[in-house]
Structure formats: structure tokens, C-alpha cells
Design a protein around this nucleic acid. Structure first.
Lengths: 217, 217
DNA sequence: ATTAAAATTTAGGCAAAGCTAAAAATTTAT
DNA sequence: ATAAATTTTTAGCTTTGCCTAAATTTTAAT
């Protein structure tokens, strides 16, 4: 399996929220920053390999084999992200490009040993679930901070908008990955949220609260 | 820089023990398991990029820039080997293929953080020196067990012949990487060596002693 | 129901990196 | 010193993955 084929499978997987719906050529081209004609070429190739189901002009859909392959690449990507953040001092926003390369390294032993070394993590640094080696995925449990009710607690696991500005703003607020927080109150007027975090109280704007993911605890 | 270019630079580096001598097209082709004509093509390309010095029919030689690039790939390869052996339970003979892939991952931060995480190792699991980030290499200090004199001590750091048979034989003798040993006596008749290792005495054949690297301590 | 617009595919090309076979240069051997 | 053998290069072809432009199909609009 080539690097390019793996990237196509991954893109198709991410584009099909629902396993039954078909993904359009243009959607894939946009996601991969390539041209529709290139997508058509590759999709034919993947189709011959029985990794996708494809009918001209009708869009494309992963076969079970293709899905498993894609999920395995995602498993590797997310395990490497955990490694980078927990062991090599990378921050949330720095991991993506490197994990994008590491996910293509081929070695089953490597993946399983890495999983063991990291103590079998279940979510990556963005709060997304890590598929197990059989391709099973726990449904994501992350929710937006804005959806927590008064009194509920959570742990910061990721951001929706990962722009540099937002990440730097979070740094300024001293909010970082893994921090625990409690919702003290919510302000109906402007939808801002008062939270307790790192032993101090902080009022978070609606915009911030709708861009910060937490897992309820 | 493409993966293929990196592999050529690395091969040329390994083939030129002496920085001044020129490496032949055929030697590169053999080392890389490719054809001489392919080598000629690539060498022209590297020459245009000023990474090698090349004159038709005269062989090829790394420029300083090319040498630095090659050494950096080797640095990454050896750091990953240390990681695989020390953190992920790989054995000496399993690391090569995976390190061969990992050495091409592009991220300066990754390399420096990995170096820190591993506590700045100076040799890889085969006893070969790890270049520093400026391309400086400590001369290798590994010697063959057969060269140690009576009373000298060393640490096992690698093998000359890395055949499966030999590695399995070492396992059977309970000799493994990092073990300390002392030469108790040498037998002039058959060049075998009596050593103390892991709190027991062991007589090692000449063939074994000439295939096992140690660093003197 | 046509026609216009949008999406998709086909056709034809390009660059990278490899190959084989033939030509050219160099080295070795008589 | 010349011929034979070896090494290296050139020429031309292949595959992968991408591109543009043109053709085709599907979808949307009147």
C-alpha cells in the first residue's frame, strides 16, 4: 500500500460520517488539496484493490477492508500524537504534521509496543478516540464546554478551532490540555461561563466555550 | 529532499570510509540493490543540487553540504534505534527495517526532543556512534572481543555478523546487549577466550570472539 | 421539458525514479 | 600497444501520481 493510497483511504473515512453514505469526488479533492481528476484516477485504483466501492458519477464508499485499513492508519496517527505530547513535549498544535508522517511507518510490532509503552491510551491529545488493534472505536465522549451545565466537571481535551490565535489565547488564560474544570455558573445574557480551573475562577466567553472540548468527569 | 535522494546520500557516505576517496557507480548500485544506470541518473541530480561532486566516469564524492545531510539522516537512524531497543523492547536484529523508515521523518523538533528523551545517547545499540546535531561524530570506540587482553573489561555493544543464527546462539549463551564482561584468560591454541559474564564463567570460541563487539571499560 | 450550471470523467502530458539494451570510456591483460 | 573485459553512461520505455483541458453526465432552474 502506498503512502498516497493510505492518505486517500483516510480522507474518505473522515468524509463519511455515516458508513453508508457515498463520498463525492470533489469532496475528496477538496479535503486532499488535489484535483478531481486525480481523485478519479486513484479511486479506480482503490476500487480494483477492493478497498472502495465505486460506480462512475455515483461517489465512493469504503469496503470493510478499506475501512479497516483507514482505521489502522488513524490508530497509528493518534498513538503517535499521544507519544509526541506526553513524551516529547509537543503541544496540541504542533503534533499534526509529524503524526501525519509517522502514521505511515509500517511495522505491526512498532504499533503494539508503542501502545504498550503509552499504557494503552484511549483518546488522543485532541480528545478523539484511538481505535483498538481490531478497528473498534469507542464513540467519542468529548463535548463542548458550552454544553456543560452548572456544577458539571470536565477535563480539557481539545479545541474545535485550532487557529494559532485561539491556542495562544488559551495559553494566556493558562488553560491547557488535561486541565480539570468545574462549571460554577452560566450567564444567560451573553452565554459566558464561569469556571473554576487550576484553583482559580475564570469567566470564559461564549465564543471560547463553543470552541473548547472537554470530557465530562 | 526526497526519500530516494536521502538514501543515496547515506549509501555514498557509508561507502566512503575516507572522505577524500571517490565512490564508484557500481559500488553504489550494489549497496542500494539497484542498477548502475539508475545511479548515474541520481548522481547527476545530486550533483546539480551541489550535494555531491561528480565527473563522468570518475566516481562521486560528497560535498560538505551532502556529508552534513547524510550524517543527519544517520543521526536520526541511530537515535530511533536506541528508542526502539530501550523503550519499545526491540532486539538488536529487529530495529533496522523500522529505523530505516523512521530516519526519513522530517521534523527538527522531533529529533532534538527524542535526543533529550533518550538522555543524549552517544552510541546506538550496535555500538556505532551517534553524530551530534552539528554533524560531529566521536570516533567509534568499539573493538572485537578477540582483541581484548587478559584482565581487560568491556560492555557488549554489537555484532559483526548479524545473522539470525549468531544472534540466537548469543541468546543461548545468555549474552545480550549491555552485558559487562571480563577476559579471564586467552587460549593460544585455538584463540578461544575465557570470560566472566553475568556472574559465571564462559569459554567463547574464536569465531564468536571475532564477531562480538565490545567497548572497553 | 429543456436548458444552463455544476460535477465528474476522459484524454493527453509531465516529473520522479526505476529498468533494459546499446554505446562509449576506462582498465586490464596479453 | 593493442585487444579484450569491465565499467559507466546514454537512450528509450515503464509506472505512479499528479496536472490541464475537453468531453460527458448529472443536477438545478426556468
Amino acid at each position: 500500500m502506498t503512502l498516497s493510497e493510505e492518505n486517500y483511504l483516510k480522507a474518505i473515512y473522515h468524509l463519511s460520517k455515516d458508513a453508508r453514505d457515498e463520498v463525492s469526488t470533489n469532496a475528496i479533492a477538496d479535503a486532499m488539496e488535489t484535483k478531481a481528476s486525480s481523485v478519479t484516477d486513484m479511486v479506480k485504483k482503490l476500487s480494483e484493490k477492493k478497498l472502495v466501492k465505486y460506480k462512475k458519477y455515483q461517489g465512493v464508499k469504503l469496503t470493510e477492508e478499506g475501512r479497516l485499513y483507514a482505521v489502522n492508519v488513524i490508530r497509528k496517527h493518534r498513538l503517535w500524537e499521544v507519544f509526541l505530547v506526553e513524551k516529547l513535549n509537543f503541544s496540541w498544535d504542533e503534533v499534526h504534521d509529524v503524526a501525519e508522517q509517522l502514521e505511515h511507518i509500517k511495522s505491526d510490532k512498532l504499533v503494539e509496543e508503542l501502545d504498550t509503552f503509552l499504557d494503552y491510551p484511549t483518546v488522543d491529545p485532541h480528545g478523539d478516540p484511538i481505535p483498538d488493534k481490531h478497528g473498534k472505536i469507542q464513540p467519542s465522549s468529548k463535548v463542548l464546554l458550552s454544553s456543560l451545565k452548572k456544577g458539571e466537571k470536565g477535563v480539557c481535551v481539545g479545541v474545535k478551532n485550532s487557529s494559532k490565535e485561539f491556542l495562544q489565547y488559551l495559553d494566556k488564560l493558562r488553560i491547557s490540555l488535561g486541565d480539570e474544570l468545574t462549571v460554577l455558573s452560566r450567564e444567560p445574557f451573553d452565554n459566558s461561563v464561569l469556571i473554576r480551573i487550576n484553583d482559580s475562577e475564570l469567566n470564559v466567553s461564549s465564543l471560547t466555550a463553543t470552541n473548547l472540548y472537554v470530557t465530562k468527569t
